[in-house]
């Protein structure tokens, strides 16, 4: 089993190689767009369902709680703040890392055990620049983009439950949303999403890139990518929130 210090050292070196690769032209646009479609566009259905369900259930619980002390008019505020600051970036990151991160680790892991990564090197191609940089850029850009969708759909889901099912007036819900929501709630949430995008692509690519041991190794890499991505997202979320929203 790999020692944690070696793993940490390798991931830092990989991160450094990716940063260098970002500033060394040319960028493989075809590969980058393909990854953006894979990470971003193909994740939209699952992100939509997650956002809608979260917004709806948030409104349901908030209404029940606030109704007890006559503050049900603030449901829109709580849904909007919860979605933009917390649930939007975190849930999007968890869903996308579970889907696209696992796929990245499995694809790179298979390429490693079938010597395709070695073949790239023999063809004078830097595998980090060719394989990881496009995924890194896509994760960094597409996760905030998906978070915007999650925020909007979550707020709309809350609106639907509060207004259509629980009888809050549309005007009250919208005022409660817009009067208390600030731009920094939205962009700080997007900064968190950007960080999560970098974290999960780096962890998933690292796990796949350094896979060893055939099919079993690919399985382990895929599981490891999802577990470490989830842990990193959840733990860093607290510190990022404490720092960004102080």
């Amino acid at each position: 089993m790999e020692r944690p210090a070696i793993g940490l050292g390798r991931i830092i070196l990989l991160f450094w190689s990716v940063i260098k690769g970002l500033f060394q032209p040319p960028l493989d646009m075809r590969n980058t767009i393909r990854q953006m479609l894979e990470i971003g566009v193909n994740s939209i259905p699952v992100v939509l369902i997650t956002a809608l369900a979260t917004g709806m259930v948030l409104a349901l619980h908030m209404y029940t709680g606030f109704d007890r002390f006559g503050a049900e008019g603030l449901v829109g505020t709580v849904v909007a703040l919860s979605m933009t600051r917390e649930f939007g970036p975190v849930l999007t990151a968890l869903v996308v890392s579970g889907r696209a991160g696992a796929s990245m680790a499995a694809e790179l892991g298979t390429m490693r055990v079938t010597e395709q990564i070695d073949a790239l090197e023999t063809l004078a191609t830097d595998p980090v620049k060719y394989l990881i940089v496009p995924r890194f850029i896509s994760g960094m850009i597409m996760l905030p983009a998906l978070t915007v969708i999650t925020d909007i759909v979550g707020i709309l889901g809350g609106y639907f439950v509060a207004v259509s099912l629980l009888g809050t007036s549309s005007r009250t819900y919208m005022r409660a949303t817009w009067d208390y929501l600030q731009m920094e709630d939205i962009y700080n949430g997007l900064i968190k999403a950007c960080f999560f995008g970098i974290a999960f692509t780096l962890i998933s690519c690292y796990k796949g890139f350094y896979t060893r041991g055939g099919a079993a190794g690919v399985g382990k890499a895929t599981t490891g990518a999802v577990v470490y991505s989830f842990m990193t997202i959840l733990i860093s979320d607290y510190f990022l929130s404490a720092w960004l929203f102080k």
Partner: peptide
């Protein structure tokens, strides 16, 4: 350097045991 090594590799060809074709 990595750049010089890549220049050298352009003068090499390698056939892998598993063929290692990009699938």
């Amino acid at each position: 350097s990595q750049e010089r090594l890549n220049e050298l590799r352009k003068r090499f060809g390698m056939l892998f045991q598993s063929s290692a074709l990009f699938d």
